Structures are given as structure tokens and as C-alpha cells.
Simulated assay, not measured.
Amino acid sequence: MGFKDKKGITVASGFKLQAAALLDARGQVKTIAERDELVTLNAVTPGLRVYVEETKTSYVYNGSGWDELTKGAGYTHPNTPGNKHIPAGGVSGQVLGWSADGQAKWVEDKDTTYNPATTGTNGLMSAADKTKLDGIAEGANNYSHPKTHAATMIVQDAEHRFVSDVDKQGWSDKYTKNEVDNKLSALETKLDWKEAVKTFADIAKTYPNPEDGWTVNVKDDDVTYRYTGNKWVAISANSIPLATKDLDGRMSKSDKAKLDGIAAGANNYTHPDTSGNKHIPAGGASGQVLGWSADGQAKWVEDKDTTYSPATTATNGLMSAADKAKLDGVAEGANNYTHPEHHPATVITEDDNHQFVTKAQKEAIDNMPSIGFGREYPQEAAPNSLFFLIG
């Protein structure tokens, strides 16, 4: 067998060295070149650790090259769901979305802006609705005042009394004070009836020299006039003037139409104008809302922008889709754990290929004699060294 097999080496003493372990057991070298020489001499197997003074770094041989212990031989970050890193890439405006169990990918953000709520769409409460709500008393109901009331719910008093159809019919059959006075006057005064004329102006033309008591009926207005000695005056019932709020008289057709349009039992109701009873003001424009004007009063004002953007670490706002995806990806009871850069050696579990040595063991290894191989003895040898002849 040759040197590469690490067995069957003939030494100077004449015996064969059956070396099942590495011949070069050095755990420390001065330079990177010396470290790599262990590979060319086939004096290294995967798992061997070597400390290089030149770089002040420990290395472990992985079978094809050297790994720094701080990079490859110590802690290996888990790659299971819940331990994967944020993926590289993405562009401005994108957020992390679900890709697979415990994995995320960059996706386009969705618009999560909410507008003020309407009667047909859910949304945020507008400032106008908040003002309106604050202006509504606790326990208020959706009361709508009726357009009419039943007469039975009206409380009568001395100045306000209802009359029935019977009462009105009875009053219609009675003479008014003026009518009675005219009747009495007609009985007391001697009347001299003359032929009727077409218009009131025709009286003067037809009877240019009237005498006291002459009485003439005018056809166009059906009013009877009597000459009093100096002028013609109306004396018939239909000559009674139209009633006003200050003068008794006949009912006009407009008053009759108004009376017919009033429901039986209607009262003189006046809607209150106190706080809490005022109506929505007229006017306004598209986009405006009702704002506070005075106690129980509102006015049309410009609406304020109540759109909320996604929350940031400095500003309150809506939860973004990215934050929701992030939150859903966080396990219940998760903590803000940051993996340390270094571990004490006591937390590392050793195995056959990964073993620690003590300081004393390391010093003992460092003090072991250096070993050399060759077909001839060297002319000079370092102190405390061994040399093996290869035959």
C-alpha cells in the first residue's frame, strides 16, 4: 500500500506502521498554505479542525474545501415554515403575500381605502354623521309628525270650539245682524220699486231725477239699490260685503275653497321652532354635508376628507393587507426573538465529526513533535521532531 492509504508505512526502525488515524494530527498551523498542504498530503479527512495563526480563524474540512467554523461548522438556521427569511426582490408599492406554508412572495398591494358609509355601502362614519349622531338625544325615536290629527285628540277651550255640519246648516238658515237690520229697515221705509236696469251706471241714465225711496234692481250683479235722497245704496242681502278679519260679511269663493280643503276637526297647528325641531335647511351643493350652526340648527358645509391610509409606525390608520398577511403568519404567543451572533460552547451538541478539545488538550497537541516523511533523512531537523523513511 502507498502513503495515500495511511496504512502499511515502513519506518526507519524496520517495522510497518499500521496507522488507522491521520498521520498529521496537527490542530494548528501558521499559514493558509500550511493548512492547504494537509490536503495535498492526504493528511486530512472531513471534520478535521485546524486553527490558522495567520488569519486567527479556525477552519473545518468539509471533504472538498475549508469552512470557517463561524460560517459552516456551527449553527445552521432552520429552513422550516416559520423560520424562512423575507424574499429578495420586489418593487415599490408591493407587499408580501402568501406563497406556501411559511413562505411569502412579493405581490401587488390592494386598495384598502374606505370611503364614508352611505345608505347602500358600508364605510367609515363621516364627520357629518358623527355631528348628526351627537345632536340626537339618548333614546330618540324616528318620529314623523302627522300631516293631520283626528278631531277627537284636540283639547277645546273657550276660544277654540268645533262646529258640526248641523250647526253650520242651522247658521246658514239664519239672517245675520246686517240682514235683520235691512229687513227691519225695509219694513219701516216706504219703497217705490222701479223697473230694473242692466248696470249700476244705467240707474242714473234711466232715473236722472230719483226721489227718496225709489228702489231699483241691477241685473248684472243682482243687487237692489234704494235712493236715500242724495245717493243710491245697496239694500239687498247679496250686497253684503265679503267678510274680512275685521268685518263680518259674506264668504268669498276663495274662503269657501280654503274651508273645503281643511279636514274636519283640523286645528291651527304651528310646528315648533325650538332646538331639536328645526328642519334641514334649503340650499347646499353636491358634496356638502350638514354641520353645526347653533343649538339645534345645521348648515351646509364642505365635507372633510375622512379617508384613512394604511397605518405606519408613526401614524394611525387602517390595517394594510401586508400587515394582515404578516399578522396571520405569526404564530399565537410568538415573541420578538433575534438569533444571537455567538453561542457559548455549552449549547452545542457534539457528534462523531464535531468534538471540542480542552485548553490542556490543545496545548498538548501543540507540543507534539512535528513529523516528516521522505526517502532520505534531512540534513537538518527541527527540535522535538520525528522523521519517517518511506521505502
Rank of each mutant, 00 (worst) to 15 (best):
37 E>A: 14
37 E>D: 13
38 L>N: 02
38 L>S: 00
38 L>E: 05
38 L>F: 09
38 L>V: 09
39 V>T: 08
39 V>K: 02
39 V>Y: 00
40 T>C: 03
40 T>W: 00
40 T>G: 00
41 L>S: 07
41 L>M: 06
41 L>A: 08
41 L>F: 01
41 L>R: 11
41 L>P: 00
41 L>Y: 01
42 N>T: 01
42 N>H: 06
42 N>W: 02
43 A>W: 09
43 A>S: 10
43 A>N: 11
43 A>G: 10
44 V>M: 11
44 V>G: 00
44 V>D: 03
44 V>W: 11
44 V>Y: 10
44 V>E: 03
45 T>D: 06
45 T>F: 00
45 T>L: 10
45 T>W: 02
45 T>A: 08
46 P>D: 04
46 P>E: 07
46 P>N: 04
47 G>Q: 04
47 G>T: 06
47 G>C: 04
47 G>S: 06
47 G>L: 06
47 G>W: 02
47 G>E: 07
47 G>Y: 07
47 G>D: 08
48 L>V: 15
48 L>P: 04
48 L>T: 15
49 R>F: 09
49 R>M: 11
49 R>I: 12
49 R>K: 13
50 V>D: 01
50 V>L: 07
50 V>R: 00
51 Y>S: 06
51 Y>T: 03
52 V>A: 03
52 V>E: 00
52 V>I: 10
52 V>C: 05
52 V>L: 04
52 V>M: 00
53 E>Y: 10
54 E>R: 09
54 E>S: 12
54 E>K: 11
54 E>C: 07
55 T>W: 01
55 T>C: 04
55 T>Q: 05
55 T>D: 08
55 T>N: 10
56 K>F: 11
56 K>G: 12
56 K>I: 14
56 K>C: 15
56 K>L: 14
56 K>T: 15
56 K>M: 14
57 T>I: 07
57 T>M: 09
57 T>W: 02
57 T>G: 08
57 T>D: 02
57 T>P: 05
57 T>A: 12
58 S>P: 03
58 S>T: 14
58 S>G: 09
58 S>W: 11
58 S>M: 14
59 Y>Q: 07
59 Y>K: 08
59 Y>N: 07
59 Y>W: 14
59 Y>A: 04
60 V>Q: 15
60 V>G: 09
60 V>L: 14
60 V>W: 04
60 V>F: 06
61 Y>V: 11
61 Y>Q: 12
61 Y>D: 13
61 Y>M: 14
61 Y>F: 14
61 Y>S: 15
62 N>I: 02
62 N>C: 05
62 N>A: 12
62 N>M: 03
62 N>Y: 03
62 N>K: 11
62 N>D: 15
63 G>A: 15
63 G>W: 12
63 G>S: 12
63 G>L: 13
63 G>E: 14
63 G>R: 09
63 G>P: 12
64 S>E: 13
64 S>P: 05
64 S>Q: 14
64 S>T: 13
64 S>V: 08
65 G>H: 04
65 G>C: 04
65 G>M: 05
65 G>L: 04
65 G>K: 02
66 W>I: 12
66 W>H: 05
66 W>T: 08
66 W>E: 05
66 W>P: 07
67 D>V: 10
67 D>E: 15
68 E>H: 11
68 E>S: 14
68 E>Q: 12
